[in-house]
Amino acid sequence: MKVAGVILAGGQARRMGGGDKGLLDLGGVSLLARVTRRFAPQVEAMCLNANGDAARFDAFGLDVVADPVEGFAGPLAGVLAGMRWAEAQGADHVVSVAADTPFFPSDLVERLQTGAAGTSPVLAAVREAGRVRRQPTFGLWPVALADDLEAALGDGVRKVVQWTERHDGREVVFGSSDAFFNVNTPEDLARAELML
């Protein structure tokens, strides 16, 4: 399995007051720099899914791919952008991570691969209060499903789980929900500083 990576940073960061959450400082290092350092050893190549002027990310040395559908269609649009980019790199799968989640597991890709079967997408999940909670921005996506995902987005599908369940979506359960803690608000950023 040849796996490429896509860092999802295409949202509008409304709860943070707008802008690019990935460029926020966490302990003297941007969130995006922390994510790329953690992700790079796990994948063969990686790109950044972001909308708008790509030049603002020049310092990271990543290919920047915009959502292929208009109107901020959510993480599935970023996954599709990553799939198309990965396909051009000769990869058969792409793993997505969120740009505002600096503590995700250092064995994320390896563990997601253990859940792979055929052309089923695999989502990371955590067990909380006796139930499994999927992490929809963290997944292993077969590039072979790109056309299907593009059609689903064209039909208005926006919820990750709605689309993955159509394709026998699977989950790999990770131990701690803190690993997938994401920075959505100024209070979250303060909590992340403590978590460092």
Rank of each mutant, 00 (worst) to 15 (best):
P136C: 13
R191G: 03
N49D: 07
D155F: 02
Q12I: 11
M1C: 06
T119P: 01
M16R: 10
G169D: 01
V29Q: 07
W141M: 12
A146Y: 03
P105W: 11
Q113A: 01
G18I: 09
M1W: 06
M195G: 02
C47L: 01
R15A: 15
A59F: 02
F103D: 09
T114L: 11
V3L: 10
V64G: 08
F104W: 14
N49Q: 12
L153V: 09
V79C: 13
L140R: 09
D58M: 02
R127Q: 15
R56V: 15
L149G: 03
D155E: 15
A50H: 01
L194Y: 07
I7V: 15
V65E: 04
D100Y: 02
A146Q: 13
I7H: 02
G71N: 12
R34G: 08
D147E: 14
T101Y: 02
F39H: 01
G27H: 06
L26E: 03
P136T: 15
D100R: 00
F60P: 00
E87N: 02
A4L: 02
D155C: 10
R127H: 08
D63T: 00
G154N: 08
T101R: 01
E44A: 10
A152D: 10
F39G: 03
P102V: 12
A99N: 05
S120L: 05
V160H: 10
A152G: 06
T114E: 11
L62K: 00
G130W: 04
L32M: 07
A91N: 00
N51D: 14
W141P: 01
T101H: 00
R34W: 12
M1T: 15
R84S: 04
L108E: 10
L23Y: 13
V6H: 01
P41S: 05
V109C: 03
P136N: 12
F104H: 03
A9H: 10
A116G: 10
L31W: 08
V97K: 03
G61T: 15
L112W: 08
V43Y: 00
E171P: 01
F174R: 09
V43P: 00
V161N: 05
L80W: 00
G118T: 12
V183I: 15
G115R: 07
E87Q: 12
L194W: 08
D67A: 08
R14Y: 14
V43S: 01
L76Q: 06
M46V: 07
L153N: 09
R166Q: 14
G115T: 07
Q89W: 06
L8C: 02
Q113V: 02
F60K: 00
G118D: 11
A116I: 03
V3F: 04
R127S: 14
G74W: 11
G71K: 09
A129R: 05
Q12K: 14
A59E: 14
V161I: 12
D168K: 15
V183D: 08
A66D: 04
N49R: 06
A179D: 12
R37A: 14
W163I: 09
A73R: 12
K159R: 13
L23V: 06
T185H: 07
E110W: 07
D168R: 14
M46Q: 15
A77E: 01
P186G: 03
P68S: 06
L48G: 00
E110A: 15
A88K: 08
A98C: 06
A129E: 14
P186V: 12
